[in-house]
């Protein structure tokens, strides 16, 4: 499905249909958590969610038309942001709690058992609180999540990228997702003069999600290096790819 052929409304409908299922941890360890059991739970859940995330990305109109190289680069860059924004959306109605999954709901203070994670929990809770204040709507969330993916890395977008066709397609895709978000805001009934403010407020969230993701990535890397938690398969690849890119 080419994004240019879709109206903003159709684009949003496709995003709704692309949504991944809610994942369960299954076999949650008994509370109270230890550092190892909490990290194991979080990484196990993340690994499951990653598989669904890739399926979700492939359903975003036009994503699979990008070069495979660009698809990989975008997903490698944004995977933790996508997990985090999903977490924030699930937690939006539950102040003080992080709804990692229906069977993994954590209070802020439960983060005390893992060195360095409380800072990240606080960032996640603060950003979730901001989403709540903004009364973020489901369709706005879907557009923002897609935008995080498509905007994840500048290299596929830049002039002189390795695949100019893919670069052009990505630019069209970014325009399409912007049109979709603008359409969603316009349909909300907000007065015209407030619509651009709302757009700006929503877009300003994205840098905070990126910041939380960067901190989370550093933390996960340190946990792995200290052997607090084994990281394997897809999650290991995504972690390595993200940290290697920084170098």
């Amino acid at each position: 499905i080419y994004p240019n052929a879709l109206s903003p409304e159709q684009f949003v409908i496709t995003l709704i249909e692309a949504e991944p299922p809610n994942v369960l941890l299954m076999n949650r360890p008994k509370k109270p958590f230890t550092e190892a059991s909490m990290m194991m739970s979080l990484t196990k859940l993340a690994d499951k969610e990653l598989v669904h995330m890739i399926g979700w990305a492939k359903k975003i109109p036009g994503f699979v038309e990008l070069s495979l190289f660009d698809q990989v680069r975008l997903l490698e860059s944004c995977w933790l942001e996508i997990l985090m924004v999903g977490l924030m959306w699930r937690s939006i109605e539950h102040p003080g709690k992080l709804i990692f999954a229906a069977d993994l709901i954590l209070d802020r203070d439960e983060g005390k058992c893992v060195e360095g994670i409380l800072e990240i929990f606080d960032m996640l809770l603060a950003t979730t609180s901001r989403l709540r204040d903004l009364k973020l709507q489901h369709k706005e969330y879907l557009c923002l999540k897609a935008m995080i993916l498509l905007n994840a890395n500048m290299f596929p977008l830049a002039m002189g990228s390795n695949d100019p066709d893919s670069s052009v397609k990505l630019r069209h895709l970014l325009n399409a997702i912007t049109d979709a978000l603008v359409w969603v805001i316009a349909k909300s009934g907000l007065p015209y003069r407030q619509q651009s403010n709302r757009l700006a407020n929503l877009l300003m969230l994205l840098s905070h999600v990126r910041h939380a993701s960067n901190k989370g990535m550093e933390h996960l890397l340190s946990m792995r290096c200290k052997n607090v938690v084994p990281v394997y398969d897809l999650l290991l690849e995504m972690l390595n790819a993200n940290t290697l890119q920084d170098h």
Binding site: V51, I54, G55, K58, V64, L68, Q71, V72, L75, E76, D233, L234, E237, M238, N240, A241
Partner: peptide
Amino acid sequence: SHKLVQLLATTAE
């Protein structure tokens, strides 16, 4: 990222 490429390249749901 072999697994990522594999998942992207497959057409299976």
